[in-house]
């Protein structure tokens, strides 16, 4: 599943470079320029991807802080 999230993320970064809408001045719903609308959708897609990441690729074995040492503060 981690690989799938990684692929989704890479896809998002590729889709971010939307050369295909570069010179398009269409107004979606009559008021949002398509280049702006597309990137607003990228923002929503980013949230969805990160939601999937927190559901299926959450790191395991993290410290819960129960064993706090002073090592760091002494260095």
């Amino acid at each position: 599943m981690r690989y799938l999230i990684g692929i989704l993320l890479l896809l998002l970064l590729v889709l971010h470079q939307d050369n295909w809408f570069w010179e398009d001045d269409t107004l979606v719903f009559g008021f949002i320029p398509i280049g702006l609308f597309y990137h607003a959708c990228i923002s929503v897609a980013a949230s969805v991807t990160w939601f999937l990441a927190t559901k299926f690729a959450w790191p395991h074995g993290l410290s819960d802080g129960a064993e706090t040492s002073q090592q760091g503060s002494n260095t």
């Binding site: 990228i42 980013a46 993290l62 410290s63 064993e67 706090t68 040492s69 090592q71 760091g72 503060s73």
Partner: peptide, 24 residues
């Protein structure tokens, strides 16, 4: 939107965990 959350996910959680454990 993409990159900030990437930093929180890839670095933030790990650094929090070590920070908590080692007292940074």
């Amino acid at each position: 939107g993409i990159i900030h959350s990437l930093c929180f996910f890839v670095l933030g959680i790990k650094l929090w965990s070590w920070g908590h454990r080692f007292g940074y």
